[in-house]
Write a protein that binds this DNA or RNA. Structure first.
Length: 982
RNA sequence: GCCGCGGUGGCGGAAUUGGUAGACGCACGGGACUCAAAAUCCCGCGAUCGCAAGGUCAUGAGAGUUCGAUUCUCUCCCGCGGCACCA
């Protein structure tokens, strides 16, 4: 074991730092501020996990470095202490959650302090402290007392709501009966985000759907802003992607289908579709079984097969979310007999179905089914033998080929080739992929040549199959006159033809040769027809260039004799179709989001009481501000009630109150808030934690916000991170958070990788492979623990714990210590000077960039060099300790004070490096011959190109390799190599 | 299926704007010190051929661009994470 007196030193300095306020942040000052943040921990009974410090130490290193660089740094800590685990712990151990929390916080505090993190403890917050949750409740009331102004795109006080609108229908926080995710084990309702994958986030139990009156917050109003503002922040790409995905924006249109056969002649079904351009291909409608119109029609007796429909409804109602989706591909459904819908595009009558593959909560809860272009609709149609209609956007091609320009201008009508592969007997359609345009094949032809013959010829040439037998060559749209002439020959396009070289605006970017070198890909025709049909919007670009003509073709084969051009409606692209629908009064453009409103009620004890009184006369009445905080009452039993109510409901003398509005008998809301409430704004409270008049003063918010760097787990991306962004935007809208702070709370968000158990598995109590930080700190001390956590691997990637690896770090720090043991004077050789300067640069850049593992390895390299040299040159002693200080704060502080330095190393000025000394005066010039390293020559750093080349050509092994041959080319890369080509 | 991220020795991982692949650490092998062990120190450590000098092959696979590719382009395979009957 090390001779290094680890624990005494660490304890001594931890106490000294605290006494001296080394890490205290000033709320103002000349220095530029830096707000570094880690997700405040949930103080569980299990204590700190080795995963927590990975994040804490990393941001600690960053903030220490920046503090030394002269920034006014705030690095606060607090406790996210409300929540289920503590409540369950309390129930099990028969103690109060308040007591359990107190004990857990004390334990976490002890553990965190033992690691020597530079937190400003004077700003500690605790979400369960009434002084804190007073403001959480106050902010909830702001939600209750606000509405979202769509025109201004921001939240405003409810008093400003136009008088003709009902306030209760527009509050940002509102209570409503809705279908929610219910965890039968935890006995609480869950937000969508907490029930991902159909299981409870806390306990893993499958969630059920349940009708329940719940407080909701209109996060959906912010969907667009939450999405768009991601452009203005520096988040890890995967974080953005995950949020974008979760918000789930789709653009498309609402389409109204009139109903025939129902008693009410004004009945209509509105569907949402992202593909209004496929409207002609809609062959039936599907409604969610819960769709309100179904109930209406049943009531009115419009539906002739009532029993069947009701039976289907009750089977799906009985299924949990898991069951509904787990069944996977097999579709089920039930037709509604007696009524039909009218396709607004072509007036066709189509059948109406209900099926659970249509979700009640998304879009309008109804879809138009286009089996030709949607896999799910296709499955459904196949199962119930419903018609399938292909929508094809043909393009009339009558163009000159720009690539042949200058040689010979050729008119190239398109022809589709559909051939039989003579080897496999498979029917194929030829397709090219060129940039983002999928092209189907196309024969070029010379003037005067028959297009179909030309296509055959070209296909033969392209494929090399000279004996191709053409099953059918389909005359594509071609020129109208050509088409007219061939119509009676039954040549019909049912696959779109597109020519890539018609994209005029991109044409010149593509070298002519490129188009000719593309290998054709052969794919089965049926595959194209069902899945790979080219996106029509692409065709549309081309269509618009080339032609106004377009049409719809039905099932292949069917249309052959139908004279399909006659009287068919004109195909339209997405946007045009949407505008057409709008003009006709049959629909409109629409945008939908997957994001749902935030279920904000929890039927549990250990949370912030929702400060609302329910009055039989006045409705929902907010608890007056001056009565906040609305304290959680002491109770004896915390068990959730089987009725699904909060334990608070049982405390009658707390529940029964006078209405703050009319003074009549009323009752308190007994639901509490989710633990995401307190964590949605804690970073604001850190700015001004003691303030009793406001949640934080405007002045201090202006100074500290936004957070400059926020690190936390990926698991919070669609929970805490999304919620707090939303919460912050809301407060910002009301200007409770000053406008100057900006619309986003976190300028930069990073995420650390998980620490896995030895062997790569996840650490878990049940597997008994959990590493306890106390043990590690106890054995090796905090510095070794810290450096090891930073050295393990890239910060953002998961890494397994390695007991041997930590030994290596211990050896490293022992070496550093020994170097300062006897202060032998060592000359500052050029090599050491270079290395020293490089190391400062590496630390300076590496810490900013969060490349901690390579920072540590650089320190090891430098240390090894000092060991070899026999000591640290005097001039480098200070700087060497300083750049190591962010990682090993205790040891460096001790050595710093041993050097006789005044004041803490952590308040000393970060060393700078000498740009001119980053490179040695000589370097090894690498000589390559034909791309292979054949020799090395040591040359001066400022060697001239001529000299370098000359020396390279003289190198022994190079001469040998060249064997007298004359170099064709000699390339010199400054400061690196000479490359000789023979 | 969609989105994101990866694939480099026995392992964790390095490699600046394309320029000596395998830094640093671990493990392993050999040696020194020791009665012995631990600790510490020294040497070696991708594969392969060779006594050696040196050569050849190697960054998931295959092509391409280049004097030169782990890095850039294309195609494909595999792994991880997230979402998922979202119309």
């Amino acid at each position: 074991m090390s001779k290094r007196p680890v624990h005494d030193i660490e304890k001594k300095w931890q106490e000294r730092w605290e006494a001296d306020g080394v890490y205290r942040a000033e709320d103002s000052g000349k220095a530029e501020k830096f707000y570094g943040l880690i997700e405040f921990p949930y103080p569980s009974g299990e204590g700190l996990h080795v995963g927590h410090p990975r994040s804490y130490v990393a941001i600690d290193a960053v903030t220490r470095k920046l503090r030394m660089s002269g920034k006014n740094v705030m690095y606060p800590i607090g406790w996210d202490a409300f929540g289920l685990p503590t409540e369950n712990f309390a129930i099990k151990n028969k103690i109060k959650p308040q007591e359990a929390t107190k004990g857990n916080i004390a334990n976490f505090t002890r553990q965190i302090k033992s690691i020597g993190l530079g937190f400003d403890w004077s700003r500690e917050v605790d979400t369960t402290d009434p002084k804190y949750y007073k403001w959480t409740q106050w902010q909830f009331l702001k939600f209750f007392n606000s509405f979202y102004d769509e025109a201004e795109q921001r939240a405003r006080p409810i008093e400003e709501l136009p008088a003709h609108l009902n306030k209760d229908e527009h509050r940002m926080a509102f209570k409503t009966a809705s279908t929610i995710n219910w965890c039968p084990r935890c006995k609480i309702g869950l937000a969508n985000e907490e029930a991902q994958g159909g299981v409870c986030e806390r306990c893993g139990n499958p969630v059920e759907k349940r009708e329940k009156a719940q407080w909701m917050i209109r996060i959906t109003k912010y969907a667009e802003r939450l999405l768009k503002d991601l452009d203005n922040v520096d988040y890890l790409e995967k974080i953005k992607a995950q949020q974008i995905n979760w918000i789930g924006k789709s653009e498309g249109a609402y389409v109204d289908f009139n109903i025939s056969g129902s008693k009410n002649p004004f009945d209509k079904v509105t569907v949402f579709t992202t593909r209004p351009d496929t409207l002609f291909g809609a062959t039936y409608l599907v409604l969610a079984p819960e769709h309100p119109l179904v109930a209406t029609w049943l009531k009115e007796g419009d539906i002739k097969n009532q029993n069947e429909v009701q039976a289907y409804q009750s089977t799906t109602a009985g299924k949990s979310e898991m069951e509904r989706t787990a069944e996977g591909k097999e579709k089920s459904g039930c037709v509604l007999k007696g009524i039909e819908a009218v396709n607004p595009a072509n007036g066709e009558n189509i059948s109406i179905w209900i099926s659970d593959y249509v979700l009640a909560g998304y879009g309008t809860g109804a879809i138009m089914a286009v089996p030709a272009h949607d896999e799910r609709d296709f499955q459904f149609a196949s199962k119930f033998e419903l018609p399938i209609k292909y929508v094809v956007a043909p393009v009339v091609i009558d163009s000159t080929n720009p690539h042949r320009e200058g040689k010979k201008t050729v008119t190239r009508p398109t022809v589709h080739a559909i051939i039989r592969n003579p080897k496999t007997d498979e029917i194929l359609c030829m397709k090219w992929k060129h940039r983002d345009i999928t092209t189907f094949v196309i024969g070029g032809m010379d003037e005067g040549e028959d297009p179909i013959e030309a296509a055959k010829r070209e296909v033969r040439e392209e494929t090399g199959y000279t004996d191709l037998k053409f099953v059918e060559v389909l005359g594509g749209p071609m020129r109208a006159d050509y088409f007219a002439a061939h119509k009676d020959e039954n040549r019909v396009a049912y696959i779109t033809a597109v020519m890539f070289d018609l994209v005029s605006d991109k044409r010149e970017e593509v070298p002519a040769s490129e188009t000719d070198t593309h290998e054709p890909v052969w794919i089965p025709l049926n595959k194209i027809a069902k899945e790979n049909l080219p996106p029509l919007e692409r065709n549309y670009i081309l269509a618009r260039i080339m032609s106004k003509e377009a049409f719809v073709v039905t099932e292949p084969g069917e249309a052959l004799n139908s004279g399909f051009l006659d009287g068919l409606p004109t195909w339209k692209a997405k946007d045009d179709m949407a505008s057409w629908l709008k003009d006709e009064g049959k629909g409109d453009k629409a945008v939908t989001y997957k994001l749902r409103d935030w279920v904000f009620s929890r039927q549990r004890y250990w949370g912030e009481p929702i400060p609302i009184v329910i009055c039989p006369k006045c409705g929902y009445v907010p608890v007056p501000e001056k009565e906040l905080p609305l304290m959680l009452p002491d109770v004896d039993a915390y068990e959730p009630l089987d009725s699904g109510e909060s334990p608070l409901a049982a405390i009658r003398d707390w529940v029964e109150v006078d209405c703050p509005n009319c003074g009549g008998k009323a009752e308190r809301e007994t639901d509490t808030m989710p633990n995401w409430a307190g964590s949605s704004w804690y970073f604001l409270r850190y700015c001004d934690p003691q303030n009793e008049k406001e949640f934080a003063s405007q002045e201090k918010l202006k100074y500290w916000m936004p957070v400059d760097l926020y690190n936390g787990g990926m698991e919070h991306t669609t929970l805490h991170l999304l919620y707090s962004r939303f919460w912050y935007k809301f407060l910002w809208d009301l200007r409770i958070v000053p406008e100057e702070c900006g619309s986003e709370p976190y300028a930069k968000r990073r995420s650390h990788g998980l620490i896995l158990a030895e062997g790569g598995e996840k650490m878990s109590k049940s597997k008994g492979n959990v590493v306890n930080p106390d043990d590690v700190v106890g054995e090796y001390g905090a510095d070794v623990f810290r450096v090891y956590e930073m050295f393990m691997g890239p910060f953002d990637q998961p890494v397994p714990w390695d007991t041997n690896g930590i030994e290596g770090v211990r050896k490293f720090l022992d070496k550093v210590w020994t170097l300062f043991d006897d202060e032998k004077n060592v000359d500052a050789s050029e090599e050491l000077v270079t290395l020293y300067n490089q190391s400062i640069k590496k630390m300076t850049d590496g810490i900013d960039g969060l490349y901690f593992n390579t920072c540590v390895s650089q320190m090891m390299i430098m240390t090894n060099a000092f060991v070899e040299a026999g000591g640290v040159p005097e001039a480098m002693r200070k700087g060497y300790l300083q750049i190591l200080a962010p990682f090993a704060p205790h040891m460096t502080e001790e050595l710093w004070s041993n050097l006789g330095m005044q004041g803490s190393i952590h308040r000393s000025a970060w060393p700078s490096y000498d740009e001119s000394k980053l490179k040695a005066s000589t370097f090894e010039l690498v000589v390559q011959v034909n791309g292979k390293v054949r020799g090395k020559v040591t040359v001066d750093a400022d060697v001239s190109e001529e000299d370098a080349k000359a020396m390279a050509l003289k190198e022994e092994n190079v001469v040998k390799t060249l064997g007298g041959k004359e170099p064709k080319q000699v390339i010199y890369v400054k400061g690196r190599l000479v490359s000789i080509v023979v």
